[in-house]
Amino acid sequence: TFELKGKVGKVVKIAEDHYLVEVEGDKWIAYSDEKLSLGDRVMVVDVDGLKLKVKRIP
């Protein structure tokens, strides 16, 4: 999972307290300090167990 840091993915689902992002064909639970929208491109900035911390990228 640490090899996911720096990888780019996209938001595929928005849940009440987390996001579902697809990175390299796999779906992961993710969270972010900013509000994300469906389809946003994101970069993995940290890995916390099986959850990814992501940030939006242009």
Rank of each mutant, 00 (worst) to 15 (best):
T1R: 10
T1L: 15
F2S: 15
F2K: 15
E3K: 01
E3M: 01
L4H: 02
L4K: 03
K5P: 08
G6Y: 01
K7M: 05
K7G: 02
K7N: 03
V8N: 06
V8A: 06
G9T: 04
G9H: 00
G9I: 01
G9Y: 01
G9A: 04
V11I: 12
V12L: 07
V12M: 09
I14P: 14
I14A: 12
I14C: 04
I14M: 12
A15M: 07
E16Q: 13
E16V: 07
D17K: 09
D17R: 15
D17A: 12
D17V: 07
D17Q: 10
D17C: 12
D17E: 06
D17H: 07
H18C: 09
H18D: 08
H18Q: 13
Y19D: 05
L20K: 06
L20F: 12
L20M: 08
L20I: 07
L20T: 09
V21M: 08
V21C: 05
V21R: 01
E22N: 05
E22M: 06
E22C: 06
E24V: 04
E24N: 02
E24A: 04
G25V: 11
G25L: 09
G25M: 08
D26P: 14
D26N: 10
D26I: 05
K27I: 08
K27S: 09
K27P: 04
K27N: 05
W28V: 03
W28D: 01
W28C: 02
I29A: 13
I29H: 13
A30L: 01
A30H: 00
Y31R: 12
Y31F: 10
Y31S: 11
Y31H: 06
S32K: 14
S32T: 07
S32R: 15
D33V: 04
E34V: 10
E34R: 05
E34I: 05
E34G: 11
K35C: 08
K35Q: 13
K35A: 08
K35S: 12
L36Y: 09
L36R: 02
L36F: 05
L38C: 06
L38T: 12
G39M: 08
G39I: 13
G39Y: 08
R41K: 07
R41G: 13
V42F: 06
V42W: 01
M43F: 04
M43D: 07
M43E: 15
V44Q: 00
V44S: 01
V45N: 05
V47K: 03
V47F: 14
D48L: 09
D48A: 05
D48H: 10
D48V: 12
G49L: 06
G49E: 10
G49V: 11
G49R: 04
K51R: 08
L52Q: 01
K53D: 14
K53R: 10
V54L: 04
K55E: 15
K55C: 14
K55G: 13
K55L: 14
R56T: 11
R56Q: 08
R56W: 14
I57C: 14
I57V: 06
I57P: 09
I57W: 07
I57H: 05
P58F: 05
P58L: 05
P58S: 05
